[in-house]
């Protein structure tokens, strides 16, 4: 069919300008070549800059490679992993901090994001203004936000001034980031403040796929708003919630920028995280092999968490 049309076109159109019609569907070898040619730039870049480094990371993890070293790297077996799990107290602290951060931030940010989405999904005048305000921190660079909040958290900063005002002067004030027991909490608040707007948008997109008719049917059955939320909205948001959960978890496990700028992992390791350790060991201390081993551990944890969440949130039927 295609061939006859093309031939007819070629004869009737009497030498049309431009290239002659090609019959590429019937030429699968041409398609083979074109397909490979189209994909090659992407494949090469992917191999060199993503998959290659990942494989190198896997190999380096079992060596004592250093960034600048006169001696070539040697294979050391599981020594790096042994060091990480049995000797490196900073790594233990970082692992614990990272898991703790994720455990707090995932429900907090996911939940607050849903609350914000429900609020701005109402049919109210000015809801776009509120959507913009809640989204504003997301489009602000994390570096800028971190510097700003570091200033707010100072002993004579705005957070203490506000608390003192609210409590009528009873609040004495403290340097939030210099106190090991409050530093992580301060970073949690600031991280949620910065990131929750993004997940509000994701939840909002999920909410808007739910047809109005579902709620009308629910209202006809005499349900309360809470029942409609619990038994209609939540189940219908399931696909969205999987996405939100997994993206927040991965982002929370990769906590780095805020810590690097606001505390540098201190005080006394109370805000050190896995990625911060990877960067410090791999670059600042130039222990590439050990840094790579930490990267591998980090990857396994993230992958395991993602798989567990996927399994837990999978549809039962």
């Amino acid at each position: 069919m295609a061939t006859t049309v093309a031939e007819r076109t070629a004869t009737t159109a009497a030498a049309p300008p431009g290239p002659p019609p090609r019959r590429r569907r019937s030429h699968s070898r041409a398609e083979q070549r074109a397909g490979a040619a189209f994909a090659v730039p992407g494949i090469v870049l992917l191999l060199v800059f993503v998959i290659g480094p990942a494989v190198v990371s896997l190999v380096l993890a079992f060596t004592n490679a250093r960034l600048i070293s006169p001696t070539p790297p040697e294979f050391v077996g599981l020594e790096n992993f042994q060091r990480a799990f049995t000797e490196d107290a900073t790594f233990h602290r970082s692992l614990l901090n990272t898991l703790l951060f994720a455990a707090v931030v995932v429900p907090l940010q996911g939940g607050l994001g849903l609350v914000l989405a429900l609020l701005v999904n109402q049919n109210l005048a000015g809801r776009n203004v509120f959507r913009t305000i809640f989204f504003l921190p997301v489009i602000t660079s994390m570096v800028v936000v971190s510097l700003l909040w570091r200033f707010l958290y100072q002993e004579d900063g705005l957070v203490n001034a506000a608390l003192s005002m609210l409590t009528g002067g009873a609040w004495a004030g403290q340097a939030w980031l210099a106190n090991p027991s409050t530093a992580m909490g301060a970073i949690v608040v600031m991280s949620v403040w910065q990131g929750v707007g993004f997940h509000m948008i994701i939840w909002l997109a999920g909410l808007q796929t739910i047809p109005e008719e579902v709620y009308e049917a629910g209202a006809l059955d005499g349900t309360t708003p809470w029942q409609r939320f619990r038994h209609l909205t939540l189940p219908l948001l399931k696909p969205t919630s999987v996405f939100v959960l997994i993206t927040i978890t991965i982002a929370a496990m990769s906590l780095f920028v805020q810590v690097n700028i606001m505390t540098g992992g201190g005080p006394v390791g109370s805000t050190s995280t896995l990625v911060l350790q990877i960067v410090q060991k791999g670059f600042q201390q130039q222990q590439m092999g050990y840094g790579a081993a930490l990267s591998l551990i980090f990857f396994c944890i993230v992958l395991a968490l993602a798989l567990v969440q996927r399994r837990l949130t999978r549809d039962k039927d």
Binding site: V50, P53, L60, A65, L67, V279, M288, F298, F299, V302
Partner: peptide, 17 residues
């Protein structure tokens, strides 16, 4: 497969490369 690979796991060998 690379979708699940966090950028942070490849930065060390990336510099080397």
């Amino acid at each position: 497969a690379t979708l699940v690979l966090p950028f942070d796991t490849t930065i060390v060998p990336m510099v080397y490369l």
